[in-house]
Design a protein around this nucleic acid. Structure first.
Lengths: 220, 220
DNA sequence: TAGCGGCTCATTGTATACAATAAAAAAACC
DNA sequence: GGTTTTTTTATTGTATACAATGAGCCGCTA
């Protein structure tokens, strides 16, 4: 690669370095949906041979970030309205499960983390730093998912969210009142704090759906 | 590979042939959990070079059938009780969602397919052919999932089921009364036919849970 | 004999060369 | 001039050679 993002990467297999790099570029829009990923061009740009590039691309496919056609190479995954709906529906299903489980397992410290996470999200919203907003929002949701304690569900949700991250990112750019998200988070926190799992589930559902509708509008 | 399962495979990239072959061997127990997958040995056995073997193994990793450790190669995924619980919980969450959606979208022809599928499953149970039982059971559930019409959920469920297929297979071997499964299927069909989605969801949940408990017992 | 250190070997990681193929361009034909 | 066929070229698929590394072995030392 010629350079390394940080020292950790120096010990990672090159395929993972390639994976991380390309993932970053896809998620934050440098590589756009539908764009071809050509092995030779990438290996030259990244300064490695084709082998780790191929393997890195396979990892991206695993995360649903690229699609491969035999003998035709890989493209950054683009998404149809139907696929977006499907992903969001799957996400909603799993994340409402997580919210429910979270209510049963929440601890005092976890609850405080949740509040702290939303505070950070609120700051990010105030700062209008898009990247920061996206990251802190993810962190907030991840606390709920972590508390639910189901590793497989977590893994699936990470993958599902990555698949629509790019669109969410674009959508946040044009959102008129992002402070609404902060208030929605607060309501979720409140429901969890009161151990009202039905309400928490409903809040999460609404929270995801409202974003879903906005993203959906943008896609079309 | 030297030979081909069928003509279709002759046109597939070798990585896919390798993937299919190894997947078969893992699912039906020829390759056992924890067993190492060594690239050179496999490439010799399958008559291809290491490259497609490596890529085939990556595909297996994507399906959760093998786990890879950097510089230590790949092993057939074995599962802890906790992981099994997590997978089953995720499956239950998504499949109850599918059952619910199925009730809303079921058509007359699909309903007939469902009944036919359970008839075939019943025959398989009578014949005591384990492989047949597993396949027809999967086919039955797949009709419900297909009818739900969410491709992403389907994809996730396929992967989740594969991860526990081997254990289910082992468990079926020692099941005392497999006809119970046929009756459970019948109840699910009935609930769907009556458009009682609450009941269908509950039936699916029970159906999965009863298997879950049995598999769980076996693992421990 | 227990523990340390370096050696060997098996195995994965990476690079590269060659083969196969699909898309694009050029040529031949009507 | 347009259409089909051939040729070229770009790109992926596959094989293989070499490098790097981790695991186990063996002898050394105390």
């Amino acid at each position: 690669m010629g350079f390394y993002e940080n020292d950790e990467d120096a010990f990672l297999p090159l395929r993972d370095v390639v994976f991380k790099q390309l993932r970053e570029e896809i998620l934050y829009g440098k590589l756009k949906p539908g764009e071809r990923l050509m092995e030779i061009a990438l290996s030259e740009r990244l300064g490695v041979s084709r082998t780790p590039v191929r393997e890195g691309i396979r990892l991206l496919e695993k995360e649903g970030l690229v699609v491969m056609l035999p003998r035709r190479g890989a493209r950054v995954a683009s998404i149809t309205a139907k696929q977006l709906e499907d992903v969001l529906e799957a996400r909603r299903t799993l994340e409402t499960f997580a919210a429910n489980a979270c209510c049963a397992k929440i601890t005092k410290t976890r609850f405080e983390e949740l509040k702290e996470a939303n505070r950070k999200f609120s700051e990010a919203v105030d700062s209008r730093d898009l990247r920061q907003m996206a990251d802190t929002d993810t962190a907030f949701h991840n606390i709920i998912i972590d508390t639910a304690g189901n590793e497989k569900v977590k893994e699936l949700l990470v993958s599902l969210k990555e698949q629509i991250f790019r669109y969410k990112y674009e959508f946040m750019k044009e959102m008129d009142d992002p402070t609404r998200l902060v208030r929605e988070h607060d309501q979720i926190i409140k429901a969890i704090g009161e151990c009202r799992s039905d309400r928490a589930v409903e809040m999460i559902r609404m929270h995801i759906d409202s974003q879903a509708i906005a993203i959906y509008r943008k896609i079309k």
